[in-house]
Every structure is written in C-alpha cells, then in structure tokens.
Design a protein around this nucleic acid. Sequence first.
DNA 1: TGTACATCAGTGAACGCGCGTTCACTGATGTAC
DNA 2: TGTACATCAGTGAACGCGCGTTCACTGATGTAC
Lengths: 226, 226
Amino acid sequence: MATLGHRCPTIQTVANSGERDRPYHHGRLKEAVVEAALAEIEAVGTSELSMREVARRAGVSHAAPAHHFGDKAGIFTEIAARGFSLLTQETGELVSGGLVEAAAGYVRFALEHKAHFEVMFRPELYRTDDPELVAARDSSFEVLYRAVEEGLQPGQEDELMPTSVAAWSALHGFATLLLYGNLEPKLGDIEPLEVYLVEVARGMITLGEIIARQEAGRPAARNPQS
Amino acid sequence: MATLGHRCPTIQTVANSGERDRPYHHGRLKEAVVEAALAEIEAVGTSELSMREVARRAGVSHAAPAHHFGDKAGIFTEIAARGFSLLTQETGELVSGGLVEAAAGYVRFALEHKAHFEVMFRPELYRTDDPELVAARDSSFEVLYRAVEEGLQPGQEDELMPTSVAAWSALHGFATLLLYGNLEPKLGDIEPLEVYLVEVARGMITLGEIIARQEAGRPAARNPQS
DNA sequence: TGTACATCAGTGAACGCGCGTTCACTGATGTAC
DNA sequence: TGTACATCAGTGAACGCGCGTTCACTGATGTAC
C-alpha cells in the first residue's frame, strides 16, 4: 500500500450530484461572505475567525471565499472599509446637532456594529494601503473635523487639530471601554446610553476646567504663551 | 503494521540524558513563562499567542507551563494582574503633580508595557473573578479617582464619577489610538510624547468649552438643572 | 546520619483536531462567429 | 438561431502544520523516622 499518492481525483463521487439543494453558482457570495464574517466576529472575536468557519456559515465550500478575497486580510479590509463608510454616513448627518449629538452617534455605531468597529481600529488585521479603505477612513475624519470646527470660535483655528484629537480620544476611549465591558462595573445600574452620555459630557466640561486651572499654575516653560 | 497503539513509553530514549545542558528543575519557571509570554505578545499579539511557543521561548518542554498556570487564560490572568499593579505603582506617585502629569504616566505605561496593557483591557482573555486581579484593578481605579478628586472644587463632589469616566475615556482612547497606530498619520511629524500630550490637554480644555457652550443652548429637557 | 517514601516539577511521545493552501476538476455563464 | 470555446465561480479531496491535551514516566527535592 505505502503512502497513497495525494493527488488522485480519478474516483469522483458523481453520486447525488443531481439532487443539489442549492445552485452551483451562489450569485452573491461576496456579500454572503462578508455577512458571515461579521456574524462570526461578533460570536467569537477577530482572533478566532477562520476562513473555513466563514465558508461554513455562508453555506459554501471552504475554498470558495478565496476566489473573492484571497485571504483573511482581504475580508478584514473589506469590512474595515465598509465600516468607515457606514460611520461617515451615520455620524455625518448628526454634526449639525453639535458635538455631543455626533458623539452619541459614534458610540451608537460602535455598539450597533461591534464587529465593524473592532476590525476598523486594528490596522494590523487589514491592508492599510487599500485605496477604497483609505478614502473611506479619510472621510470619517472629515466628519470629526467638521464637528469640531463648527464648535470653535473665530480665531481658534489653531486649536482644530489638538481639539479633534482630544475629542476623538474621549469618544473612542468611551466607546471601547463600554464595548469591552470595562465600564459597567463602575456604572452601577447601566442607564440608557443617551442619559449616561450626557452625564459624561458634563464630566468632560468639568475635566476641561480642572486641566485649565491646574495648567495655569504651571511654570512658564510648559506654557510659553502665558 | 496497522496503527501503532498510541501509548508506548516502553522505549525511552535514555541517550544523552547525562549531558543535559540545563538542570531538570528550572527554579523560576513561573517568572520565565510570564516573561516569555510578554515577549511573545509584543512580537505577535494576543491572538497568536500559543502555549507551545511560550514554552519554547522559556526553553522548557511544552507541557511544563501548564504545571503553573493550567491554561492560556491562567497566563493572561497573571499578566493582567501584574499590569494593574504596575500601573497603580507608576501613576500613583504622579497624582500630586496634577491630572495631566498622571495622564502622561498612564500613556507612558501603555507605550512601555504594550503587552500588559493589551491584555488588561481585553477581559475576555482572562478570569475576571480572580481575587488578586480584582484587587489590583480596583487600586488602579483608586488612583484615577484620587487624581480627579484633587482637581475638583468644593461642592463638586457629585461630579466625581462622570468626570472620572470622562478622564479615563480620554486617556484610554488616546493611549489605544496611539498604541495601535491610528494616530500617527494625523500627527505629521511625531513629536515627543510630553509635548504632544500637553497640546492634547489644551485640546481637552477647548473641547470642554465647546460642549459647555453647545449644551447651554439646549432645550431644558436635557438640562433640567438650568 | 542514613534511609524510605511522598510530593513536586519537568519530559517527551502520541493523540485528535481544525486550520490554510493547493489542485484537478465540474457546472454555469458569457461571447464570438 | 446555433455551436464552439473561454472564462468565471464553486467543489471536494488531500496535503502538511501547529496547536492543546493527555499520560506514563523521570529527576530532584523535601520530610519523617
């Protein structure tokens, strides 16, 4: 017998090839794979995602997804790009309502699209140079800038970048802490998001005041403009 | 031949058992495993961590770590607990220097102990009910509260929780965005951390002002106290 | 001071499993003439 | 309208690999008497 040579497709099981329950061509496999991957990520996280399981979920042979995405990074890239588009869409229309309104949109996005969100901010998972992704991501940042810009007063243009980074940090930190369950134990009874967010926004005001007071009392070296 | 029964320890390789290059008993394997795991996490991330690779790094048989930790979650629990202790230690002594000083400590911790940090905020990786871990985590929070409390003015006691959550969010968001490489592209040339942080702190002040202005102009329903 | 025995710490072979990848193939859908 | 051919989309068997786990064992270190 010895080791049976490993390419021997001679004996093909032609059996039950007649009663196939689904068409040979899926039709919208790309969509189906993305959906399956999202569901799988929500179930087991990005680390445990396997191409085979995704294929299984999509009801397709395990080699099929590779036709559309190449490898896992391909799927992640697609998910991240779609995520940024979605985020732009969902927060863009809230900008006119003020920063807190837009922030609420961001947090809601994170909670409602957990899988997208998780992938978007783990650049090691996807191809960061993908043009579609880059465009989608940039337009997300645009929304942030606009939201901050509208809140600035005349003459504060220099503050756009630092304030944007501050806003994004606060927002992103809040969303991730909430998402990964690091916040609840400190919340007591978890209030509806809307109320809680307004409360934290008030905390942001207090925080700004504290920093202003403390930094005002510093040696000039760190406040050359004062 | 057929399938060779799978328990056959009869033929033991007694060969080269004399010229062992390391002692049979490691002596401080627990330490060595933790160090190896940290190095491995920094190299490949938490998702790719394997017990076998950790053992290999520690120069020990792949079954040995299980003696001390049971499984992967055991190692992660140990790392998370140590991480929180370290964080408490490194930021605790900065509290008297003000919020921004303490914040800088937090961010520095995240950058200098990347592996600890990554594990600490992924509770799904470890046993969240481990008593040592819980104690260590709680004392980290204590530091945060103290830092915020010292900045509050008399009569602002109610603001402790919202302000703490706001501060932690901002801090944590900034650290993670920085750590996972989501911030650099927006930084232009990456300035020394210290300077950059002070700039973002100034952004936090501006941010607080914007929120205050915008929320002041809202319908009473959302600002019942006004 | 010696000896027997228990316990602890680490070994290494074998297991079964699921994974990503490859590959020759098949079934369906255009497309040229 | 028909037919030949190319291209695309999906299949399924087999591969080699690394993993976690189990297990009987071994080597070293206490500990009782």
